[in-house]
């Protein structure tokens, strides 16, 4: 039996944007099939960090990344690694819902299609499965050909999650996925996150500490580009080891 490990090991990760040192010597291990939250004040490097895990920083010309990110034991920054394979394995959901200005069906079918699925029946199956998994199917099944922009913000974000699920990733990165949503839509996304960790390794960046406390198994606190403290969510919130962490979670900073 092949044991499939999809944990993430980050070693000595540094990111520079021109002269700004955005991420400093971050090393941490993200566990498989758990939800790991990244918290910290604005500008602490948490988004930069998560965007290193699927190499999204590659598209920013000024970004320079050094260090290792090992997924399944493979360094995704290795020269032999095809970046599109990395991103197929590691999906990402963004801060603001960003569906394509196309139909609901096309939004989901796009990724499987570019990865080689051509038959309409196969695509329809993937689309339905992904939408069901993202708890959106019942709301959209009768209007698959309508524009994704007719959906509400929360529905759009779940559509973006379904779109990511359609590439069958092993890890899903969420970059503040609820920051543009109302509390009800946020609750739905949080329920979904907890459901998704049965099958996927989930990393979520959030500036909402309650959200981290509600959904995450483990939490990492970043400050000024450094990883200050990392541990189980309960420990981090109830008995933080570092003063900085305590100041942040008690609202005296940030």
């Amino acid at each position: 039996m092949v044991i499939h490990v999809t944990d993430i090991t980050v070693r000595q990760l540094n990111v520079h944007f021109d002269k700004a040192h955005a991420l400093k010597d971050v090393s941490m291990r993200i566990e498989e099939k758990k939800i790991t939250a990244i918290i910290g004040p604005s500008g602490c490097g948490k988004s930069t960090f998560i965007r290193c895990i699927n190499r999204m920083n590659d598209i920013i010309p000024s970004a320079k990344v050094t260090g290792d990110v090992l997924v399944d034991g493979t360094n995704i920054y290795d020269a032999k690694v095809d970046v599109t394979d990395v991103r197929k394995k590691i999906g990402m959901v963004f801060q603001k819902p960003n569906p394509f200005p196309k139909s609901i069906f096309e939004n989901i079918a796009y990724a499987p299609r570019i990865h080689g699925t051509k038959r309409k029946e196969d695509l329809s199956l993937i689309v339905e499965r992904s939408l069901r998994r993202a708890a959106l199917w019942d709301e959209v099944k009768d209007r698959m050909n309508k524009s994704a922009y007719d959906l509400s913000g929360g529905q759009q974000q779940r559509l973006c999650i379904a779109r990511t699920l359609a590439i069958e990733p092993e890890i899903i990165l969420f970059d503040e996925p609820c920051s543009a949503l109302d509390p009800i839509a946020t609750a739905k996304i949080e329920d979904l996150l907890i459901d998704l960790k049965k099958d996927y390794t989930v990393v979520i960046v959030t500036h909402n500490m309650q959200q981290a406390a509600r959904v995450a198994d483990r939490t990492a606190f970043f400050y000024l580009g450094e990883l200050i403290e990392y541990g189980s969510t309960r420990d981090l919130f109830e008995k933080p080891e570092k003063d900085l962490t305590e100041q942040y979670i008690t609202g005296r900073m940030g």
Binding site: N54, M56, I59, T84, D85, V86, R87, K88, G91, M92, F94, K96, N98, P99, F100, P101, Y110, A111, I114, H115, C160, R163, T164, I167
Partner: peptide, 13 residues
């Protein structure tokens, strides 16, 4: 919007 480019790139396009 750059977010649409990111959406496609993040799907492995």
């Amino acid at each position: 919007p750059p977010s649409l480019r990111e959406a496609s790139i993040a799907l492995g396009a």
